[in-house]
Design a protein around this nucleic acid. Structure first.
Lengths: 228, 228
DNA sequence: CGTAACCTTGACAGACTTCAAGGTACGTGG
DNA sequence: CCACGTACCTTGAAGTCTGTCAAGGTTACG
């Protein structure tokens, strides 16, 4: 039980008995090296994966052979929710750095959830949060300019890092410009230019992958100010 | 119990006893007239709503006062999943035509789900499907040109209509060009032009809101063939 | 029948992409 | 320890797609 499911996705209070239950839930944890695949699109769905540490991207391969990034997942987040309905993984999951994940067999989770209402509720909240997050990206893709998209992306990372107890204003990007661009619906050159522009304006400092946010309020203002 | 929750979101087999349980689940159904709001962004979340008949859009008001459409919901689909985690509605829900919905108190649903595992599983699948659908929109917004976006949108509607037993190739759009554009990240003029273009190519027939799909394969090809 | 909301089409402008070149960081092997 | 190669990042110039602005037509409903 080195991998605390409680810490990962159960901020709600649990009794010791319930924690005991969860002992049966986690199969094991294992490592995924940078660039390795945790799961492939089309493969059978059996388990969710909680990111113990590290960072992942999810992406799909398009007919022309290029890939589109659909999400980034960091320490403490849950992978695989999209696969529940089709019972197949709908995307590839790739480690951006050497990482560790905990496997959570979904059937077991549902079984055990029958006896721990708060566990079920928590799962529902996590899924709902995923929906809310995706909606945010849709808003971003649907109505924002390049620099606004990047600002929104940085603020989103910032929020998620803060939730996990990391610095919300000083962090290392694990994704390349190309991955970020793919996620934001931009070309890598546009991402690069947008980084430069935000830096020129003094809102952030960019040192390749090391990002510092100087003025969260102004970044938020940039996001809100989408011309339409 | 004129509003069959079973038909709405429970294609899995249920015993009569379970159906009996569900009788307690549905509070009541009611009508929402065209243009009326079913729920407002920021209001407290208590219930999901199953669309008995009719059509809805969800949208958020941006700081500049304009709205962005985040989703369309038709007969048989479930509204409000995004509100579970924040326990507040994250968007406005507006009827596109006179509609009827069934209210499903979420706490009750979770309680009853404790005794009917298949009901819980079904909820998870519905939420997962919502995530998959949103991912599809993200793909669309992130990597497709205007005509490809529109083709993908029409195919998505087609699939959902087919699932509910309606014609997948001949249907009435309930949304305006502006709403569609907002959802697809395009201006209404671009939507209009794209409709015209797809019609010129013989893939569809457009009669204002009445759409006929002539060549689903070619439409799919258009979608897959996104330049990047 | 008239008004308001909605749809279509054209011309021009702006934002992002594409194409191209060069620079920087990192890891491997000599 | 340094050299070299690869992967990644930055910046410029030209091209394309979509947005913007404008005008006119159609539909629906009171």
């Amino acid at each position: 039980m080195t991998c605390s499911f409680r810490e990962l996705c159960l901020p709600v209070g649990l009794t010791d008995e319930e924690i005991e239950y969860l002992g049966n839930l986690i199969n094991y944890k294992f490592r995924v090296r940078r660039g390795e695949y945790l799961s492939h699109a089309g493969s059978d769905f059996k388990s969710l994966y909680a990111v113990k540490n590290g960072s992942f991207k999810t992406c799909v391969l398009k007919v022309d052979g290029r890939q589109q990034v659909t999400g980034f997942y960091m320490t403490g987040e849950l992978l695989g929710l999209d696969a529940i309905s089709p019972e197949k993984h709908t995307c590839d999951t790739v480690a951006l750095v050497d990482s560790e994940v905990c496997e959570v067999p979904f059937k077991k989770l549902e079984e055990i959830g029958q006896n721990i209402p708060s566990l079920m509720s928590q799962l529902h909240k996590i899924m709902s949060r995923e929906i809310v997050q995706d909606r945010g990206v849709m808003m971003l893709l649907g109505g924002m300019r390049a620099e606004e998209r990047l600002a929104a992306f940085l603020l989103n990372l910032s929020t998620r890092l803060a939730r996990r107890g990391y610095s919300p204003t000083d962090f290392i990007l694990r994704a390349t410009r190309e991955d970020i661009g793919s996620y934001l619906g931009l070309k890598l050159e546009t991402v690069s230019r947008s980084f430069s522009k935000l830096q020129e304006e003094g809102l952030i400092t960019v040192n390749i992958k090391h990002i510092t946010l100087h003025d969260v309020d102004k970044l938020n203002f940039r996001v809100g100010n989408s011309a339409d």
